[in-house]
Each structure stands twice: as structure tokens, then as C-alpha cells.
Amino acid sequence: MENSMELSKHMEFIFLGALILIGVSAAATAAVPKLLAPAAQVASVKASTTPIVVVKAKRLTAEEKAALGE
């Protein structure tokens, strides 16, 4: 009989705990609206405006390489 009395005393805390658990799980599995997901928008902008770097230089001769190695 004592165990059922303790359970009824703590029923409010059990209910609140279950309510919090349901709320957290609902928030964790909810879809993210487009306005709150700027990373996807940034990724699409970066993909379309990717900078291209072109490096042009003449090759060193054997004498120039030897002079740099000293």
C-alpha cells in the first residue's frame, strides 16, 4: 500500500517529465524552415560563385635552381 501512495505523490513530476520529454523529442525531429537554415543558402551561393585562381610563371632554368639552392 505504501508504494502506491508514493507513486500518487510523485504523479505530477512523472507527468511533467513525460511532457518535457515529448516536447524535446518533437523539437529535435521537427523540420527546419528555410529562413532558419542559412547554411544551405550559403552553400548554394558559394557553389555558384566559386573563385578560380590561375597561377602563371616561367620555369626556372638549371642555373637559376642552382643559384637558389646555395
Rank of each mutant, 00 (worst) to 15 (best):
M5N: 12
M5G: 02
E6T: 09
E6S: 07
E6V: 10
E6L: 12
L7Y: 05
L7P: 01
S8K: 08
K9F: 08
K9E: 13
K9H: 11
K9R: 15
M11Y: 04
E12S: 12
E12D: 13
F13K: 11
I14V: 09
I14N: 02
F15I: 04
F15P: 00
F15L: 04
F15N: 03
L16P: 00
G17I: 00
G17F: 03
A18N: 01
A18P: 00
L19P: 00
I20L: 08
I20T: 04
I20D: 00
L21G: 02
L21V: 09
I22R: 03
I22H: 00
I22Y: 03
G23K: 02
G23Q: 01
V24Y: 06
V24G: 01
S25H: 14
S25I: 14
A26H: 07
A26T: 13
A26Q: 12
A27T: 06
A27I: 12
A28W: 13
A30R: 15
A31H: 09
A31T: 12
A31R: 12
V32S: 04
V32Y: 04
P33K: 11
P33M: 07
P33H: 06
K34T: 10
K34S: 10
K34I: 05
L35F: 03
L36E: 08
P38L: 01
P38H: 00
P38Q: 03
A39R: 01
A39L: 06
A40Q: 09
A40I: 01
A40N: 05
A40F: 00
A40K: 09
V42M: 08
V42C: 01
A43L: 05
S44F: 00
V45H: 03
V45T: 04
V45A: 04
S48E: 15
S48Q: 15
S48A: 15
T49E: 14
T50V: 11
T50D: 09
T50R: 13
T50Q: 14
P51C: 15
I52S: 09
I52Y: 06
V53M: 10
V53G: 04
V53Y: 06
V54R: 07
V54L: 07
V55N: 07
A57I: 05
A57K: 12
A57D: 09
R59W: 05
L60G: 08
L60F: 13
T61P: 10
A62P: 07
A62G: 02
A62M: 10
E63S: 09
E63C: 04
E64N: 12
E64K: 14
K65M: 12
K65V: 13
A66H: 11
L68P: 04
G69R: 15
